[in-house]
Design a protein around this nucleic acid. Structure first.
Lengths: 352, 352
DNA sequence: ACGATTTCCGGACAGGTGTCCGCGTCAAGC
DNA sequence: GCTTGACGCGGACACCTGTCCGGAAATCGT
């Protein structure tokens, strides 16, 4: 009763054969008990189950899964395990997959190692592979081709624009469009972009949205929006935003509204403005992206874009389950999730 | 060359037998190539490897692991996937395990499901199980007993006080002791505890540290420290800290220094004090716990306790590797990690 | 006590891989 | 042309489980 010290601890049993020997039954009989097959005397069922409870026997999953066709597992490849929105997606996806009877294999991406990770997933015979986050485009495309060749269901969450890839992603153009509409309605006409370069391909979508909103008001992107990204190295986002804001403050006529790549950068900029004696939102407006918990913890609370994680994962599950049940689609699926602008107190009417 | 549309795509191959048929060799020969056995002509080796590259064949891990004794995998049971410090531990542990050739199986704890999770780990024949975070003590103890019985290496990170469990944990008593020494040296003599009840068993260790620091100055815990935990429900930590601080502000003589359970609560309290017109650290001092990124993003930056995650995981890996190589220890291992107080600008000399 | 029925045994196979071993084959050396 | 290697073939076994099936044994009813 009291291990681990006691000498008469129950024996370690690692196979149904050993368990059968232990209870004095045939291996097949034990197997029948484990799989709830009919035609067994209640007394023997109970005898086996008691032995299982005592010894804590667990059937070898490898032998079971070797035989059965479906492993009921999906591989999840994460960009990293530190960015809050990525983790919220992982957490809810993992929970929902479990609810559908699927086990998750989680691996973390490292540059150049995506092939190793995918081979691991394939050798574990996962039924689907999900990528969450942003990756090297060439690498990711190569992995998708591999998955297509192996007829394994796949899905990319967030990273947008991979050919042949089934994708669920936030509509970042629409997000920027809505945010800019909000700022334009408040009277702002000159904008500072924080961490969003005007020409970099990875942020093209956001720029499109910004340009569209400006164009609707007869404004030109180059004339009314400015970006200082080349000047500052991006290490810690908070310091990055802080440094970017100081660049803008050195201008003769700084913009009145600032749109940041993410919440941390926005908060770093807010700090820089406040240190300079400016009041938010009286003198300048600042917006973030992601709607992390810190947004409400700021003074003033940060206006930002919500990623709509629940709908995103819901759509992801729909795509996954549909493909797992009905087979691969003939053409790649693209589902864009409409974002939502969360207006708080960091944005207000333009000063002049 | 251009699938998935092309008709002459390479065939799907799922076993060495099929691969052998495909290249016109014997299955055993293919197997020998895969396992780098000697005595093969270089030309045939290359022929097989070319076929593997073309078809993307991956040997079935279940069959391999069914035969081989060691699975080189460890199960990691997480309290949740949302708390930043837990995730930093997971991320670094996972990276280091991979560096040692181990695969991680990650599962998320849910009350009452720990048994299911452990059975999954055991059926996957993991070589070790790691728990990260705080769990139901009774449940965790039962799981540890199960692991001991199965002679599976285990380790508990954070949760302290489980009998027979190998544990690596931050010395929370010492953390509170150091923090209180810092505040006492600044002249503070009356303290508010935020989220740390005076009598709750789960926070006993911290209270010990606080009491020890007070006793060294001839002060009594009950007389000089106060906690309002029962009055407020704890949902979001930030709002919780905010509400707790308001309780203290309603007192005739509020404390001058506040020690919070974690950073979020501390920040909520800071906000409440600042809204009330108090300056930090001129009028009140506030301290947090965890040293999350947000600490440096506050105005003023938050004095807090650093969890020393790198040393923690380093110690964890030492324990794990030692037990994996040399077998289980006769007595449970307990390694406590000395914390470090990070002094920033949210603490200063007592006003009166 | 006998037949009918329930219950269990034990052999067999499949699933994919790693490994061992005897044997056939082919080419090179003499 | 013969011997000697080098090399590949293919059968066999082990790992563990799930399942089928014929036969043996125990149990039950009468």
């Amino acid at each position: 009763m009291s291990f681990p010290d006691s000498k008469n601890a129950p024996p370690r049993i690692t196979s149904t054969a050993e368990l059968a020997r232990h209870v004095g039954l045939a291996r097949t009989t034990v197997s029948r008990v484990l799989n709830r097959q009919p035609g067994l005397k209640p007394s023997t069922i109970e005898r086996v189950q008691k032995a299982i409870a005592e010894t804590g026997f667990t059937p070898n999953a490898f032998a079971t899964l070797l035989k059965g066709k479906g492993t009921s597992s999906v591989g999840i490849c994460m960009e990293n395990l530190l960015t809050p929105p990525l983790l919220r997606k992982l957490a809810t996806l993992q929970r929902q997959l479990r609810g559908q009877g699927y086990t998750s294999l989680i691996e973390v991406y490292a540059p150049g190692e995506s092939r190793t990770i995918l081979r691991h997933f394939l050798s574990m015979r996962v039924e689907a592979v999900v990528f969450i986050g942003h990756f090297d485009a060439g690498e990711l495309e190569a992995r998708i081709r591999e998955l297509l060749r192996h007829r394994v269901v796949h899905l990319v969450i967030d990273h947008h624009g991979i050919p042949h890839a089934n994708t669920v992603t936030l509509d970042r153009a629409q997000a920027m469009r809505k945010m800019m509409d909000h700022l334009l309605a408040l009277g702002h006409r000159s904008f500072g972009l924080l961490g969003i370069p005007l020409d970099h391909p990875s942020h093209l979508e956001r720029i499109h949205g910004i340009r569209a909103a400006l164009a609707a008001q007869g404004l030109d992107l180059q004339a009314s929006a400015r970006s200082f990204d080349a000047q500052c190295v991006r290490a810690q986002d908070f310091e990055f935003g802080h440094a970017l804001a100081r660049q803008f403050l050195a201008l003769k006529q700084p913009p009145t509204a600032y749109v940041a790549l993410n919440d941390e950068i926005a908060i770093g900029a807010m700090r820089a403005f406040q240190e300079d004696g400016l009041a938010i939102p009286r003198d300048v407006s600042v917006t973030g992206f992601n709607n992390q918990d810190i947004c409400t913890m700021m003074a003033p609370p940060l206006t930002t874009v919500d990623q709509q994680i629940e709908p995103t994962i819901k759509a992801a599950m729909q795509v996954l389950m549909s493909h797992l049940r009905n087979g691969l689609p003939s053409r790649p699926i693209l589902r864009t999730i409409p974002p939502e602008v969360i207006i708080r107190q960091s944005t207000g009417r333009a000063a002049r």
